[in-house]
Amino acid sequence: MNARADVLAAIRRSIGATGTEQTRVMAVDDRLERAPRGVVPQRGQVAGEERLALFRRMAEYAQASVDEVASAAQVPAAVAGYLRQHNLPATLRMGDDPRLKAMPWGETTLDLATGPSDGRDLNGLSHAVGGVAETGTLALTSGADNPTTLNFLPDNHVVIVRESDLSGDYEDLWRRLRFAHGKAVMPRTVNLVTGPSRSGDIEQTILLGAHGPRRLHIVVVRS
């Protein structure tokens, strides 16, 4: 009674292999090691202002809103302004991310809370590790810095991303993640987020705010 051995043996019987053929083993090891890039669309092959513009255009196409600030010090005022503009309560929950903690929140009247969400927070704030301009996608990783629950439970999710962390394509994001975590090592959770939550399950009518955030607001930090 070893299901694993049985299933693998059944596969090998069907493809006529033993599992020990050197050529097959080498083909697999080689692919895992080299991780060939495949077809990477031209669309994302832009840099600088063009990359930021593409990121912005694609994120907005996915119904996120995008703001730009010149420096990290301007983030709190921009976030407070966004919440005010949409008549949202002046509350904000975030993780321990030192980049967020270092921002001058004292300049705002926001009521701040720290740690994962229990589902009762209206507004959540996260710092993304990167973004992909090709589709206006944010990349967030789990941990005490940016708890995963903040990405999904609050009604309004505000995400900070540095312009210098934006990638043109997913392949560049993987390169950056491998650089940060090591080859073949992943953070526990990587969330790629493209716009706010939605569902089309009732009569194919797309509606925002299914189970995750109803609004996604992105603040890009330049410089």
Partner: peptide, 24 residues
């Protein structure tokens, strides 16, 4: 599937909650 450029949430999960993780 839906004609979207990308789905809203694409999530990569590797193992259980790690030391220091506040959720998961």
């Amino acid at each position: 599937a839906t004609g979207q450029e990308f789905s809203v949430y694409t999530t990569f999960s590797t193992g259980p909650r790690r030391a220091g993780d506040p959720d998961g």
